[in-house]
Nucleic acid binder design. Structure first.
Lengths: 337, 337
DNA sequence: CTGAAAGCGCTAACAA
DNA sequence: TTGTTAGCGCTTTCAG
């Protein structure tokens, strides 16, 4: 293992000089810098992370807390995680992966041990039990998601309420009067996940204003579950002509079942999905959809965190504006029969 | 921040005693232990990770290198990652998330800096450029995947070759004589990803023995791509009655297109998928499939790594035996017309 | 069974 | 522009 002292000796300078060449925290003459850099390369030197963390009081690690639930759409989480990791690297940070398993204890452990300088939390619930801890700590943190009370916290999220409203607006504008919402699995609502409830709120509020009816049904993924849900919906509201789907594993089953029932999309019923663009494009009918900007959420979260770590920027709620892309699954409501 | 010294003072013992209570590396009288533990609790002490890593020469961190490619089936990667993280925690390790982006440099950085004690690599290519580095280092590592030459390496993987063979065996046993294989995206084969090529090899070898024909077609996901692929297959081999699918985003399109063409599953054509059980069960036809044991791969990888870190166990290739579950998508080949 | 003390490799005053 | 030096908080000999 090569140490800073060895580099210093090899370059014929003092340890601190090498340290300063590395950190850039004071000016170094060009020749010295070059000699040091040369030695670093020749010896294959890498600063020891532990020593750095101890002496410098910062680990250059960001903790990322990912839920280990399986009822969420996994690719989105993964995309966020990867965006976090790559963005963090561009700022000189590594990412420590924490699963939800340890719960709030993980927060204590990480902040207490100095393992990480800051943390990013995903899958935030409206009344998340980790929030009090975050408010106490002086460690910077960013939530990806929006809790009920965001006082003293920094949050990055898609504006789900606006997303819901946008879907209704699109359908109402096309003349649809009865809209069914196929939602996430019941468990998601039961634990009051922020995005799910907010979407619903935005949807309902906008529907009220537009004078259209909304029927919301949570749904486990898969064909069988959806067949049941769909039957109930048409049973209760036979006049339903518009669907909003916020559940990736219900998208394809919905299209297949509608087809099977002889309901043409978009002639008889329109479908608007809330999902990543890739899902919308790859579906059997190219879906009109509001995209979930996973990458941008991950990137923004890191950038806010780094800003905080650098003493710039404070608490703030960043809501990304939803964008609806019209594709082949939505069209004018059929004339009333 | 609470330090070990403060705990020692509070408990009225020396620093080393506290350290030994924590590590259990020498016997401590019951009363002393209790007093120390009490102080730890009262003060809310957490050992400083950096100091530990520096003094103890181990960080208690395992690096996990995940590719950032988007052409692989993401949920499997995520499931592995989560299994790695949770298993690692039960052994006292945290997990550092590295994306493929930095490539081999990440290996150098992590081993050189002592950031992690060991690493797990995913998405291994047959001739992976990271392998030479791993062989040089004295840092333990485990691959999830199997390269062409596994000398001096520890690998955990599903036995893809046996998986391919098993699929053919099942279909051949049902009397199918012409089998089409719908594979991963072309890019996956182009970079010689281990699992894709091995599956193909196993499949072909077994087909040769059984005297059945095999036609392999890589395929991007989605309906449009699959429609093209499928047309070409039936064009070239009109007598195809068996399908093996190794591409999650082709599963549902395949079923839909077959249905649309009036080919009944499993009466006219049989389909065997290589995918996570959840996908097989949630599809529009419950699929006969070989499961991808993501969790077990993650878990086993960590356990082997921990064994190495503890000086137990050396290099080894662990191939998990594939298991085929018969569901509703496969049946006897139709009588030749 | 317990203490004292010497580092681990690096950073950041403080000096020059 | 550079060097000297005192820690950072912990582990681990070496003594007792």
């Amino acid at each position: 293992m090569v140490t800073l002292a060895e580099v210093a000796q090899h370059a014929g300078v003092s340890a601190s000089t090498v340290s300063y060449v590395l950190s850039g925290k004071r000016s170094i003459s060009a020749t010295t810098r070059q000699r040091v850099e040369q030695s670093i390369r020749e010896l294959g030197y890498h600063p020891n992370a532990g020593a750095r963390a101890l002496a410098g009081k910062r680990s250059n690690i960001i903790a990322l807390m990912i839920p280990l639930r399986t009822d969420m759409y996994v690719p989105v989480m993964m995309e966020i995680a990867i965006a976090v990791a790559t963005t963090a690297r561009t700022h000189g940070y590594d990412v420590l992966l924490l699963t939800g398993e340890e719960g709030p204890d993980a927060v204590r452990r990480v902040t207490g041990s100095g393992l990480a300088d800051a943390m990013i939390l995903m899958d935030v619930e409206l009344e998340d039990e980790r929030l009090p801890l975050l408010r106490e700590t002086d460690q910077p943190s960013v939530l990806i998601g929006l809790p009920a009370d965001s006082t003293g916290l920094t949050c990055v999220d898609l504006d789900w309420s606006a997303t819901g409203a946008l879907c209704v607006e699109h359908l109402a504008g096309l003349g649809h009067r009865d809209i069914a919402v196929i939602g996430e699995a019941p468990a998601v609502y039961e634990r009051h996940t922020g995005f799910a409830e907010r979407t619903l709120d935005g949807l309902r509020a906008r529907a009220r204003r537009a004078g259209v009816g909304v029927l919301h049904r949570p749904c486990e993924g898969g064909y069988d579950a959806l067949a049941l849900t769909l039957a109930r919906i048409f049973d209760e509201r036979p006049g339903t002509t518009g669907f909003v789907v916020q559940n990736e594993s219900a998208v394809e089953p919905l299209l297949a079942l509608l087809r099977q029932q002889g309901r043409a999309v978009p002639e008889d019923v329109s479908v608007v999905a809330i999902c990543p663009d890739q899902v919308a494009v790859q579906a059997s009918v190219r879906l009109t959809s509001v995209a979930i900007p996973a990458q941008e959420m991950g990137r923004r979260a890191v950038e806010h965190l780094v800003a905080k770590l650098d003493g710039r920027g404070g608490d703030e709620v960043v809501l990304l504006a939803p964008e609806l892309t019209v594709r082949a699954s939505s069209g004018p409501a059929p004339a009333a029969s």
